[in-house]
């Protein structure tokens, strides 16, 4: 499509127009993502309204320390992403590569922690559809299963977005290494930054809504074990 020597694709007039188009296009995409996750948050709210106690008890089986650690990882990766974009804007390729690597590092740490969490839940037989087994109060069983289903579905979808993000990040890293970006043209870096921050944003809501509902309960909180 684009002329090999010019960063402006043939159907645009100016760099500015192309950049604006990309920004709005990206935000429209994020709007679809907001509605996508929003539908799940609505489902979450409905079932939490229906099973308030079961959600609280089931949530106390989450390890909030892991979730909190992951929250920090994502926030840090967001900050490094901001610095990556501003390095690209200033044409500092070394800075761009370094901050992208840092972003990827913390993103990967997030997924590693997530993996251990999932394994832990698997051993505790918390996974609906696979091995869910509720040993707590029987009247909470349905609500707890619903909680865990939503937990796995929402965090799973979020983790999928993280994986896609890391894939994109590798691509951005390689192209940055090849020197494709300049202060005139760094749209892909900036657009990827928006995506990455959005993934962070989702987690900021997932963390309190999934991990902390039962944090004020006494230890053991009525769950099994």
């Amino acid at each position: 499509m684009s002329n090999a020597h010019s960063p402006v694709a043939h159907h645009f007039y100016t760099v500015e127009q192309q950049k604006d188009s990309a920004t709005i296009g990206m935000w429209l995409f994020l709007a679809t993502e907001i509605l996508l996750f929003g539908a799940l948050f609505t489902a979450y709210a409905v079932y939490r309204y229906r099973f308030p106690d079961a959600f609280m008890v089931a949530s106390s089986r989450m390890d909030w320390k892991m979730g909190g650690l992951n929250t920090l990882f994502l926030i840090i990766s967001s900050v490094t992403m901001v610095f990556a974009v501003s390095s690209a804007e200033k044409g500092r390729r070394g800075g761009l590569l370094g901050f992208l690597a840092a972003t990827g590092f913390f993103g990967t740490l997030f997924l590693v922690v997530k993996y251990f969490e999932y394994m832990h839940h698997y051993h505790d037989r918390d996974v609906p559809g696979l091995n869910f087994h509720w040993t707590g109060a029987p009247e909470l069983a349905n609500g707890a299963q619903m909680f865990f289903f939503l937990y796995f579905f929402m965090t799973g979808l979020h983790a999928l977005h993280m994986l896609v993000g890391l894939g994109l990040l590798i691509w951005i890293f390689i192209t940055a290494y090849q020197g494709k970006y300049s202060p005139e043209y760094y749209n892909p870096v900036e657009m990827f930054g928006l995506y990455w921050h959005f993934v962070d944003l989702v987690w900021i809501f997932l963390f309190p809504l999934l991990y902390l509902l039962g944090a004020h309960l006494p230890p053991g909180g009525g769950g099994h074990h």
Partner: peptide
Amino acid sequence: LATPVLGITMVLIAVERFAKVGIFDPALG
């Protein structure tokens, strides 16, 4: 703005059928 909601709803149906979890099943709440 509307289509993503359909998309995720379709995925929920597919997951519920596949994994036998009960997000829309009254028997499971």
